[in-house]
């Protein structure tokens, strides 16, 4: 059952593609950001599942444990979580400003508004 031993990787791929699809298919900017977060989270799952050592415990000093999982990918993913959080925060802040400036968070409506603006004012003011 090779399929089952690779279970976490399959889940990472499913998560990643779900996130990627959400980014591309939805028009709502907030939903796009949710998709983007899923996309980033799948990479964290990938790193953490790859760092698992057979019979290894979590990489924290424990009584009686001799085999530990690889701690380095865990540490890298702590940084990646911070990066993902910062991206989400900046993205949501921009969405709030977009809502204020355009009155909508739907991408197709924003594109339509932009097109009206540039074809209405020839001078691109």
């Amino acid at each position: 059952m090779e399929l089952m031993t690779h279970y976490p990787y399959w889940m990472a791929i499913v998560l990643m593609m779900t996130g990627f699809y959400t980014v591309m298919a939805t028009s709502n900017l907030v939903k796009k950001l949710i998709g983007l977060s899923m996309f980033q989270t799948s990479v964290m799952l990938f790193y953490v599942s790859a760092s698992k050592v057979k019979f290894g415990v979590a990489p924290v000093m424990t009584e009686g444990a001799t085999v530990y999982s690889n701690p380095l990918p865990h540490v890298l993913m702590l940084t990646a979580i911070v990066v993902g959080l910062a991206t989400l925060a900046v993205g949501l802040a921009i969405v709030v400003r977009i809502r204020g400036a355009y009155g909508t968070v739907e991408e197709d409506e924003i594109i339509a508004l932009d097109r009206d603006q540039s074809s209405g004012g020839r001078n691109d003011e």
């Binding site: 980014v23 900017l29 983007l36 993205g91 921009i94 977009i98 932009d114």
Partner: peptide, 10 residues
């Protein structure tokens, strides 16, 4: 600029 920044962020 906001729409452009959002697209760039994505």
């Amino acid at each position: 600029a906001l729409a452009a920044a959002f697209q760039y962020l994505m």
